[in-house]
Nucleic acid binder design. Structure first.
Lengths: 210, 210
DNA sequence: GACAACACTTGATTTATATCAAGTAATGTT
DNA sequence: AACATTACTTGATATAAATCAAGTGTTGTC
């Protein structure tokens, strides 16, 4: 990023490194937004709280910026974020960020690109949740983990079956049944928190078909 | 917006006014994005095409900018837009826009705000579609039309029941039944394309309850 | 090592909503 | 005006997936 020396100084002065333990809340929906969160390591969930139940908007890992939406909308975080495992983050002061955005067009452009990418992701997730059924939604979760988060076909996740059920917006029992079918059909090999994708093409096909 | 004279000249040189007839496609998902669309008048739907079926992302009317997502992502429109009624738009050259964003931080900031507002709207819509059932989803449509689009409690919509069913992601038959119940319960008075919201508080409550 | 608490599985039942079917009303066309 | 086409309604049936229920397996705690 093309920041001036002045801007860099500003940034470093207003940057804090923090660690969160598994399960901790990193951002609480509805609270005043003091900073933007940059994830250095660990998996988190971004979710909307809606009375009793919650809707998971996305999973985010290493290298992602979270909370940019708070720049607009009265500095209030429009969603919550919590840690699936121990997480290390960097907190960037929101006013510093706002200041630089308002003065450095190239920087603003990059933030814009991040938000736009998120926006498109969000549209796809909406389509996934509304149009697809159980198998398609789970296939999408597998693709997300494999392509976006771990960049592998075999990986360990800090997610319980219950978590995965929440992410794919289905009941725990349905999740259990879907996983069983995927394993029986040799599409995946899922034992405990270890996921191996055996037939990647089939997962892709299931994601498209729904 | 704080644009320099030079930028204004640029803009006016690369601005075209166009009219679309009811039903016409204004933006086609997957095509090369030449411009951003500013709606001068008329109601349009923004939707994702996904094989056979479609998912409506939002309704937009007078004063809205559409297609900003194409700035990022190889200048390809990530969704389609079509006219529910005769629509008048202004087309802004995407390269001009990009150029100004990259050089005028204040302008970039405003575009950023628009996208962020959209992003939050999109999250709410996702929650609506995934968490709520028929009545809650229809209540949300009523609120959207009444608060965001028409700013009235009584208005005429260019939408058929079929359209409304698509927007709320339910079957035409369910839409019919839900409208009947709303009318029977004196919550609304819907005849043809004329909608009167009689009990606004109840609509809000139904939207929250789901 | 016993016990509690929780994660997961699996089958039976229920439920919300889609689909099917068959009709009436509204609209457009020659 | 007659006819076709489409929009809408309404009841009956089908279905995907949730919930319920009753288990087993796993983990943590004193």
């Amino acid at each position: 990023m093309k920041l001036t020396t002045d801007e860099l100084v500003h940034f470093n002065k207003n940057r804090v490194e923090v660690n969160f333990r598994k399960g901790e809340t990193i951002i609480k929906q509805g609270t005043f937004a003091g900073h933007i969160v940059y994830i250095r390591s660990g998996l988190v969930k971004v979710f909307k709280e809606h009375g009793e139940d919650e809707l998971i908007l996305s999973l985010e890992g290493r290298g992602k910026m979270i909370g940019l939406q708070a720049i607009y909308s009265n500095n209030i975080y429009p969603y919550s974020v919590s840690a699936y495992e121990d997480v290390s983050v960097c907190l960037l002061d929101i006013n510093t960020l706002k200041y630089i955005i308002g003065n450095n067009a190239k920087f603003a452009e990059q933030i814009l690109n991040i938000i736009i990418e998120e926006s498109i992701f969000s549209h796809n997730r909406m389509a996934c949740l509304s149009l697809k059924q159980l198998h398609g939604r789970f296939a999408d979760l597998l693709l997300c983990l494999s392509l976006r988060i771990y960049r592998r076909k075999i990986f360990k996740v800090p997610l319980s079956k219950k978590d995965m059920a929440l992410i794919t917006n289905m009941s725990q029992e349905s999740m259990s049944r879907v996983i069983k079918e995927f394993n029986d059909d040799k599409i995946t090999e899922i034992h405990g928190n270890r996921i191996s994708i055996l037939d990647f093409e089939k997962v892709k096909r299931l994601s498209v078909v729904g």
